[in-house]
């Protein structure tokens, strides 16, 4: 009993130490750094009060990046959840080749995002890309995809949905297996059609799964970076800048760690608010 208690204490201490050193410590350091003119390469760290925040809120690029981030999250999460749910429903209803189809949809998820982004960058190329070739066959020419300020971000969103939808499909399929068959059969006897079954049995049963996929997707897409870095580097102009790309640029290209930390704090607050609202919804509380 005593040895078990010692083991619990040891594991707890190790976990606390791990999170303190690798998570909480750097978070506190970044928060403090957000009030400083901080350049680790030149070894400068001077407190400048709220100057980083003042400059940030007056910088149109920050607001553009925030707007783009929210736009990206809203579209990609919706696309992933809706499409994932529809595909899962379809796969759940087929009897043959279920495993093969499941693997097929999951395949892009296990591919490295860097490789996928590079391939899609070529697909989108306005001169030699596959999509342009297909569109040309229908007489549509000169679509610039990643070079068009209105199409660049949606093009990246489409790629992201394609890559990540398989994850939602697998989670939803697992959830669909938990829907009691007896209730479905009982509803059939009572005369419920497929649509009524979907809205009144399947979706309410899948509610925790849905919320899980939505929350993890939102947190993950607020941190989208790699595909933007590979495909557009924030361009054309600044039209595909998202907050994480802005943080990367400020910290690792310009070495303005203080300013980058201020953006990070803002991103942290945004994610925290969104997550809080979702938890409220999940618990069925008032928002």
């Amino acid at each position: 009993m005593a040895s078990q208690r010692a083991l619990v204490i040891l594991v707890s201490v190790l976990m606390i130490l791990f999170y303190s050193i690798f998570s909480i410590g750097p978070m506190i350091y970044a928060f403090v750094g957000s009030f400083a003119n901080w350049n680790p390469i030149k070894d400068t760290f001077q407190f400048i009060s709220f100057n980083n925040y003042i400059h940030l809120f007056n910088n149109p690029l920050f607001w553009t990046s925030l707007k783009n981030t929210i736009y990206f999250v809203a579209v990609v999460v919706t696309g992933r959840v809706v499409l994932g749910f529809i595909i899962a429903l379809g796969l759940n209803s087929i009897r043959k080749h279920k495993s093969f189809m499941r693997s097929l949809y999951f395949l892009p998820v296990i591919m490295p995002i860097v490789a996928v982004a590079l391939v899609w960058k070529w697909l989108y190329d306005p001169n030699i890309g596959f999509f342009q070739m297909v569109l040309s066959a229908f007489g549509i020419t000169n679509v610039k995809f990643l070079f068009d300020k209105d199409l660049a971000l949606p093009s990246i969103m489409l790629m992201t949905i394609w890559k990540d939808v398989g994850y939602a499909v697998i989670i939803f399929l697992a959830g669909l297996m938990d829907v009691p068959q007896s209730i479905i059969e009982a509803s059939e006897i009572d005369g419920a059609n497929k649509r009524q079954q979907l809205w009144n049995i399947i979706i309410p049963t899948l509610r925790p799964t849905l919320i899980f996929v939505i929350i993890t997707s939102i947190i993950s897409y607020f941190q989208a970076f790699t595909q933007i870095f590979i495909m557009t580097k924030g361009g054309p102009g600044t039209s595909t800048h998202v907050l994480l790309y802005l943080i990367y640029r400020e910290a690792f290209q310009y070495y303005r760690f203080g300013y980058a930390s201020a953006i990070t704090v803002c991103l942290f607050i945004v994610i925290m608010i969104v997550t809080f609202i979702q938890f409220k919804i999940m618990k069925g509380g008032e928002v």
Binding site: K144, F147, D148, K149, G235, P236, G237, T238, S239
Partner: peptide, 11 residues
């Protein structure tokens, strides 16, 4: 500079 050129030429 690169962004400015893109904004004028592409956007």
């Amino acid at each position: 500079i690169r962004q400015t050129m893109e904004e004028v030429a592409v956007m």
